[in-house]
C-alpha cells in the first residue's frame, strides 16, 4: 500500500479542520486543545498537532490529508510535513486584520510547492474584510506566482472540491508542460 499526502494550511480559524472533515472518508482525527492565544483568534479550541483525515484510493493506496496547526510557532511542523506532499491548500480568513500578511507567511513557508504550482488559495469570509480577490492575485503576481485564488465557504463540500479540483489540475498541468517544449 502506498500513501500520498495533501496539506491544508492557513491561520487559526480559517477552516482547515472543517475542510478536511468535508472530504475525509472517516471523521478526522483532531488534536485540539484549549486556545491559549485569544489575541490571534477568539475560538475556544485550536489545533495543536496535525489534524488528520484520509481518503481510500483504488488499488488499496491512501491519500492522507493533514491540517497544519495554524499558529506560526508550529512552523517547524509545516516544513516536516511538506516533504513528499503532492500539494497544499492555503485557506485565508479575510476577516482577519492583515490577510495578505498571513498569505505571505504561508506562501513563504511552502514556497517550493508554490513555485511548482502545487498550491491553491481559498478565501473565506470575503465580505467580512476589506481585501479584494484582486489584491490577493496582485500580491501573488508581485511574487512571480500565478496560483488559483477562489472565494469559498469550506463548510460547503463542493467548495472544498473546487479547491482540490484546481490543485490536481495545477499539478497535472505542471507535469504536462514539463514534457512539452516551449513555443
Amino acid at each position: 500500500m502506498r500513501e500520498y499526502k495533501l496539506l491544508f494550511a492557513g491561520p487559526m480559524g480559517a477552516g482547515k479542520t472543517t475542510a478536511i472533515a468535508a472530504i475525509s472518508d472517516a471523521a478526522p482525527v483532531r488534536t485540539e486543545a484549549v486556545n491559549s492565544d485569544r489575541v490571534q483568534h477568539s475560538k475556544e479550541l485550536t489545533t495543536v498537532g496535525f489534524d488528520y483525515g484520509e481518503i481510500a484510493l483504488d488499488g488499496g493506496d491512501r491519500l492522507r490529508l493533514y491540517g497544519m496547526p495554524g499558529q506560526d510557532r508550529f512552523d517547524f511542523m509545516w516544513k516536516v510535513a511538506s516533504e513528499g506532499a503532492l500539494g497544499v491548500v492555503l485557506l485565508s480568513d479575510n476577516s482577519r486584520p492583515e490577510p495578505l500578511k498571513d498569505l505571505a507567511l504561508y506562501v513563504e513557508s511552502f514556497r517550493a510547492m508554490a513555485e511548482r504550482g502545487a498550491m491553491v488559495i481559498g478565501i473565506g469570509r470575503l465580505g467580512s474584510g476589506h481585501t479584494s480577490v484582486e489584491s490577493y492575485t496582485a500580491w501573488l503576481a508581485g511574487q512571480g506566482l500565478s496560483l488559483p485564488v477562489f472565494t469559498v465557504d469550506v463548510r460547503r463540500r463542493d467548495d472544498v472540491l473546487l479547491l482540490l479540483d484546481a490543485l490536481l489540475y495545477q499539478i497535472e498541468a505542471a507535469r504536462l508542460l514539463a514534457d512539452t517544449p516551449h513555443a
Partner: peptide
Amino acid sequence: IRCASLLTQR
C-alpha cells in the same frame, strides 16, 4: 479549470 491551469502556467 483544466484550461486555466495550463494557460496560467504557460
